[in-house]
Simulated assay, not measured.
Amino acid sequence: MRAVEPVPTDGSPQAAARLAELAAAALDGEGPAVLPTGPGEPPPASDLLAPVDDDVAAIVTTTGSTGDAKAVLLPASALRASADATSRRIGPPGRWLLALPAHHVAGLQVLLRSAHAGRPAAAMDLREGFRPDAFAALTGEAGAAYTSLVPTQLVRLLDAGGDVLDALRSFTAVLLGGAAADVALFERARAAGVPLVTTYGMSETCGGCVYDGRPLDGVTVDLEPDGRIVLGGATVAAGYRGAVSEADRAAFTGDGFRTNDLGAWSPDGRLAVLGRADDVIVTGGENVAPATVERALLAQDGVREACVVGVPDPEWGARVVAAVVGDGLDGEALRAAVAPGLGRAAPRAVTVLDALPLRGIGKPDRAALRTYLDDSLGGSLRGSDRT
């Protein structure tokens, strides 16, 4: 059995460097397994610090998208398989730039992949948040070949243009994951010359394991009859630690992990992720996938971000509502523009915000947005019979 060492991080390069050193030692079997914690998080509960199997190198916590966060056991063998498969897909081993929180799986993977290449990662100072100018400056200083971003960061870098965009173009590959992004953003980045690679995965698969819709070497993707995605192979975690539900434990099936995401195969054999099963909105007896409505909104001029949720309604069960981010937008005009093509899935209201509420490494906080929109729109929605 192996000891577990909590490793606090605060967004500083120094904390990231310490985590990288301890995680690399754990990967080589020369130290305790690491349990990174984020800024302001309390010390881990005692049950998370009990010894683990010798092969476990790290314990990471999920962002709690569907409930309480869970602690995931990541074997050294799975982390190595992920690093090797990533290198085979995107290019030779090289230095990585860390622009994500180090305690999340995507940030930890940046540190480990750079260590795997024999070059310490260059880490941004994130204590004051992500700044495009700081990203560009560090890119030039570090000579990094790879980085990982979430969509909100990519949007800000593209909007900055100039030297920032030049820095983004200089990478061998820019991995984009952590949250759903729209086709328009992909096209915009690639048209600007950004070597973008879209990724899909989660803490339970050591981060991204499907790149540009195709599984990495050693990774399998299966779809259940209802469209549920099942990921399998060498990068799957060893399970959860601590108190989790029986349903959560049952998600691990041998060498597979049954996700809560819905998917479909595109005509060219790529995996298209349609959204989370528990995000589906049931309105008037019909199922509405938020991603479908979000794509329609994002196709409208000036819309940079969109998030769709269902707010409670006594007659319909839920009403479809949306929040968008962009300059000079009119919510009612957007609603009218997308309604003809969406039918019953059309949003009942579209609210323009300065920013979407976020959680984790940049995923929209649907629960917080649902509460906000229910409070701000609920009365007017429930007072109308318009569909």
Rank of each mutant, 00 (worst) to 15 (best):
W96L: 05
P132A: 08
R348C: 10
R382K: 08
V110I: 05
D278K: 11
I229H: 01
Y372I: 07
P215Y: 09
S376Y: 09
V194H: 01
F171R: 01
E41T: 05
G302F: 11
A33V: 04
P51L: 04
D54E: 08
T9W: 01
L176M: 06
G140Y: 04
V72Y: 00
C307G: 04
P267E: 14
V110A: 04
H104N: 02
T351K: 08
P290S: 12
D222G: 09
D54L: 10
R169W: 11
D125I: 15
D10W: 02
V311K: 00
L274K: 02
R214L: 13
L157R: 07
D47L: 09
L165T: 12
D385N: 10
G284F: 04
D375V: 14
P151Y: 11
V155L: 14
L373E: 08
A136H: 07
S203D: 12
L342Y: 05
Y200C: 06
P8E: 02
T172V: 12
L100N: 00
D182F: 10
V52M: 08
P267R: 12
T235A: 10
T172S: 15
G269S: 07
A289T: 15
D261T: 03
D327M: 02
A26E: 03
R169V: 08
P364T: 10
P357V: 14
